[in-house]
Design a protein around this nucleic acid. Structure first.
Length: 665
RNA sequence: GCGCCCAUAGCUCAGCUGGAUAGAGCAUCGGACUUCUAAUCCGACGGUCGGAGGUUCGAAUCCUCCUGGGCGUGCCA
């Protein structure tokens, strides 16, 4: 049920019958100018087509155009008589009888009256794609949650969706683990308890690498800082002695130097912290002394792996399943899954061929020892093979694109990846175009950064990234505080046992993080605020989940199953008597509009907005329209039907967002 | 230097691709529970949409410039 589409058809017909039909091009563009009414007093929808058409006609005005359209349009079954307002708006109010008929039909439809799209496409979604062997952190939330939501929504709309988690399973992080295992590992412990042990080995080697890197960087940073400070004082003097426009310019230059100084200072600070962390631990200090060239050694282990060294390949094969277990634990908890998990390693054998192919066709060429694809639009080329012969992620992405094109022939490929990589994707898409690698529509679904309270990318106090699991735990703990608040829980009969409490806390806590992420516009950064996310009030998952629980509670209380409610409503019919009933009914029929908008714009926040609006409309209904004390049986049946439909729609919408519901909370 | 992105209420954010008086949520203040869970509902307060021009019936939205922030920028991913 997509009411604007219905209205668009009617307007299309009407416009075609108007006097100006032959003089105006693209009439359908104007027919489609249907929007929800800006204000309830104007009705439910409005058409804005008369204004632009009026502008195109020399001896006519928008209100005349609107009058002519209204004279031609056939809307009797759908709307009350349309009204012209303001400069030429056509205001439309949906007939109650239409809403009632549709809601009745909705009772029998497990798709909540969302029709499958007419021209399904094959859409491949690339999302999540963490590096295995490395703990998942806060940065993985967005790609995972947004990708999951888009995949579910597009699939529900009727597209053929293929999800592929492009794991980083072939990079330096494996060199790290292999090195750690060889030097600090205990085969027995790894055998018995592989997942935490490998994670520990990763942390140890990573810390040692960080330590040496920081030690090496300090003198450089210090001299850089000195240099910058000298430059700065010169610049300040120059600014002070200059006049007019010149002074302003020089002042600006000085300010930009000051900014560079503070950046260098914070880099120094971070390096010192890293060093201090290792220095405070005698065991680690000794290891650091014993492994001075650890970074190079790790790279060497990685190269050996890539070159097919027997021992390293065997270790990689041994460790990979455990690393996958580790991330799968998080996916299980997030309730996220993929059709395919071809990691980077899967494409390893195809990389040389990609380079050879492009070189042979004259599209790639050697430059400074590296193999590059030069693109007119970009200053820097896309490098596909390093001077030392190693391949890069650009190479892997090309190989991946070729494989996906050959095996899935997708109409579209969506890459759900951080906005900071947009230039990489522009280049990748340009190369794909240049080389004819794929005819699919390639889209970078970019997203902003998760920031801390201070507006800086979210980090722990010591400067490291925040682990995803601990974040989830915090959210669940916070949710538990709410769920177990005795004042609330005591109202429930029968009382909640510990098991149910824990389950509700898990569902609410995980939901809170996902919901808050999806609620923001995909492309903007947002500040992560746990206490707001699990808050009891406002636009949170808690509110939506609570609304669902209320619908379930009403049915429980009245002692009827969904099927029984549906049966009753079908025999007695649906009559919208109260404004709150009507508002809720209309809201429920707008589900497809929300999903369409998510799909058109790859914008999950539009679905969040819809969920919130639905929950809000239900709360208002719940406040004003009592079900048990309804004046007549027919009124009660109508309200029960609305309760059931609301429950279904909220549950389905949350499901598409990747969020579960509970029966009571 | 070059490129991309951003600036909306005290705070956190929307704003459906140019439409009517710019909206939510927090926060603040004031109302509403003998009734299906008050995690609710109803009001009030709060904005020169960073600034200046331009495009037109009409601009937070499109164009130009300015200011202030963020990110990226030849061998990491």
């Amino acid at each position: 049920m997509h009411i604007p589409s219905l209205l668009t058809e009617r307007f299309s017909d009407a416009l075609g019958r108007c006097d100006f039909a032959t003089t105006i091009d693209h009439l359908d563009r104007y027919a489609g100018m249907i929007r929800p009414a800006g204000n309830p007093k104007f009705g439910d929808y409005q058409s804005n087509c008369a204004m632009p058409i009026g502008k195109l006609l020399p001896d006519s005005n928008p209100r005349d155009v609107a009058a002519q359209v209204i004279a031609q349009i056939q809307l009797d079954d759908l709307c009350d008589p349309p009204e012209i307002a303001g400069p030429g708006f056509i205001n439309l109010r949906i007939k109650d009888s239409f809403l009632q008929t549709q809601l009745k039909a909705m009772l029998d439809d497990d798709r909540c009256l969302v029709t499958a799209c007419e021209s399904p496409k094959t859409i491949l979604l690339d999302y999540s794609s963490p590096n295995v062997a490395k703990p998942m952190h806060v940065g993985h939330i967005r790609t995972t949650v947004i990708g999951n939501c888009l995949a579910k929504t597009l699939r529900f709309i009727g597209h053929r969706v293929i999800t592929d988690n492009h794991l980083g399973d072939w990079g330096t992080q494996f060199g790290i683990i292999i090195y750690g295992y060889k030097h600090f590992g205990d085969p027995e412990i790894v055998r018995q308890d592989p997942v935490p042990e490998l994670a520990k080995l990763y942390r140890v080697v990573h810390q040692l690498m960080g330590y040496h890197k920081s030690v090496a960087s300090i003198p450089k940073l210090e001299s850089e800082l000195e240099h910058q400070q000298a430059e700065h004082s010169v610049a300040v003097e120059a600014a002070n002695s200059a006049e007019g426009k010149d002074a302003k310019k020089k002042r600006k230059a000085a300010d930009s130097l000051a900014k560079k100084i503070s950046a260098t200072e914070s880099a120094l600070d971070a390096a010192r912290k890293t060093i201090a962390k290792t220095q405070s631990d005698p065991v680690m200090m000794q290891r650091a002394a014993e492994h001075p060239d650890i970074s190079q050694a790790v790279l060497a282990e990685t190269s050996k792996l890539h070159a097919g060294d027997a021992e390293n390949c065997q270790l990689w094969e041994q460790f990979l399943p455990y690393c996958k277990d580790e991330i799968n634990r998080v996916y299980d908890r997030l309730n996220v899954s993929f059709d395919y998990t071809y990691g980077e390693s899967f494409y390893h054998s195809m990389l040389a061929d990609v380079v050879a192919d492009l070189t042979q066709r004259g599209l790639a060429s050697e430059s400074d020892g590296a193999v590059c694809v030069f693109l007119d639009q970009f200053e820097a080329p896309m490098i596909i093979q390093k001077r030392d012969g190693a391949f890069l992620y650009a190479t892997t992405d090309l190989a991946t694109l070729r494989y996906r094109t050959e095996h899935f022939s997708p109409d579209e490929i969506l890459y759900v990846v951080d906005a900071r990589q947009s230039e990489h994707f522009e280049k990748l898409f340009a190369v794909a175009e240049l080389t004819g690698l794929s005819d699919a529509r390639l889209v970078h679904i970019s997203f902003g950064t998760v920031l801390g309270e201070d507006g800086r990318p979210m980090k722990t106090r010591s400067g490291s990234l925040i682990g995803l699991e601990s974040l989830l735990n915090d959210a669940v703990d916070a949710a538990y505080q709410v769920v177990c608040d005795p004042e609330r829980v005591n109202k429930l009969d029968p009382p909640m046992d510990d098991d149910e409490k824990r389950q509700v806390a898990e569902t609410v806590g995980i939901g809170a993080i996902k919901y808050a992420d999806l609620a923001h516009d995909r492309t903007s950064d947002y500040k992560f605020n746990l206490s707001k996310m699990v808050a009891l009030t406002g636009n949170t998952s808690t509110y939506a989940q609570y609304s669902y629980a209320r619908t379930a509670g009403i049915l429980r209380r009245i002692g009827l199953t969904e099927a029984e409610v549906v049966e009753r409503a079908k025999t007695s019919g649906l009559l919208l008597n109260h404004p709150a009933e009507r508002a809720l009914g209309l809201q429920l029929l707008q589900f497809e509009e929300a999903l369409q908008s998510v799909s058109d714009n790859h914008a999950p926040n539009h679905l969040v907005d819809y969920v919130y609006a639905t929950a809000e409309t239900f709360s208002r209904f719940n406040d004003q329209c009592h079900v048990m004390n309804a004046e007549t049986p027919d009124i009660q049946n109508t309200r029960l039907a609305l309760v059931v439909l609301t429950g279904r729609v909220i549950k389905k919408a949350l499901e598409l967002l990747g969020i579960d519901v509970v029966q009571r909370m």
